[in-house]
Design a protein around this nucleic acid. Structure first.
Lengths: 189, 189
DNA sequence: AGCTAGGTATACCGACCTGTTTCCTTTTTC
DNA sequence: GAAAAAGGAAACAGGTCGGTATACCTAGCT
């Protein structure tokens, strides 16, 4: 199947935005890399911001689908799946073109709280947090909302640490912390 | 005491960079806000990048000093200081002009691994991690390097969550997770 | 008074920015 | 095979970018 010019453009834009930032990526250079003309871009998107939002929305669904698939492929038991989250993250950190979480990066450049860009970022983080809480519930952990939120924080922290400090091992540190937290949750205080 | 034009410029630059990003902040607008001429800027810094590095290096020392002072003011007991870290972070998140960690934001825009900007960011994260590990050692926790790294991940995660999701409560979620992790570390497995 | 260091203000430079338009070619569709 | 839709290439517009250079203006020192 041949992907549409639009999808191709969004894909290339995602790579460029991830590698050089949003302000740092110019339309001209982006189009040259994609082999697509300006006319085509502005036929599909009204502005650069609209392209950015399309990139983020597309990445949201792609990342979610891949992430869940990988987690489910790694473990069947719900509690193990909760830990597998960090193994999948570890693989992600080790990808040769890992530039951190594109949503975090987007918020860094677009701090205005009301923009569609910020909304897309909030939605993604909400989705991931909900996913982890759902896993915690499947694992029959008490207070899945609490432990899920804690594990989500660990995942966020590992992601930025892998990016900023270049510490690819952060995922496994987080995994051991997650193991402790899960064990604590199962132990009556 | 009257602060120098240079320090004033760096201070204003820090605010502008935090609020609008690095690429998003133009030299002209920045100078207008600071009430300083271009000649003065380029008498002190050779380029915008050099100004950015000065901002980051300055923020590194200021943030560290303030953070440690606040932590030490909140608690005397080493173990409580480890938890107080998250209370200080909570106050930080609630500041009216909270734009997340400027070092994370900088890395989002400057991904090239060799730039002085990236170095400044890595140095800051290393310093904070070391500080937390030192607190864990002071608290006589076994394997302070391990638990310290875990708590550092929680702090990072809370910071980005407060920024991206606007969840100012993230610090307290992290604090409870930290409490569990510390308790686990003190309980023989 | 007069010199100097440091400052402001402003014009200017070339490059790049997002976005529009024009002209021409390719591809699809009937 | 002709009409129509879509796309490529490139010029263009108006602004802004980082950075330089020039002219004028003080404050402080001697």
């Amino acid at each position: 199947m041949v992907i549409s010019r639009r999808d191709h453009l969004v894909q290339v834009a995602q790579d460029e935005f991830a590698a050089h930032g949003f302000h740092g990526t110019g339309i001209d250079g982006l189009l040259a890399k994609a082999g697509v003309s300006k006319k085509t871009l502005y036929a599909h998107f009204r502005s650069k911001e609209e392209l950015i939002v399309a990139v983020l929305r597309g990445h949201d669904t792609n990342f979610r689908d891949d992430f869940k698939r990988d987690v489910e492929a790694l473990a069947d038991d719900p509690k193990e799946r909760l830990l597998a989250v960090f193994d999948v993250a570890s693989d992600w950190f080790h990808e040769k073109s890992f530039y951190g979480c594109i949503f975090i990066n987007a918020v860094a450049e677009y701090s205005e709280g009301t923009s569609p860009i910020r909304e897309a970022c909030r939605d993604f983080k909400q989705m991931m947090k909900t996913y982890i809480i759902d896993l915690a519930r499947d694992a029959s952990l008490p207070q899945p909302g609490v432990i899920g939120a804690q594990l989500a924080l660990l995942l966020e922290g590992a992601t930025v640490t892998a990016q900023v400090s270049g510490d690819k091992n952060a995922a496994l540190i987080a995994k051991e912390a997650a193991r402790s937290l899960i064990a604590s949750a199962l132990t009556p205080a």
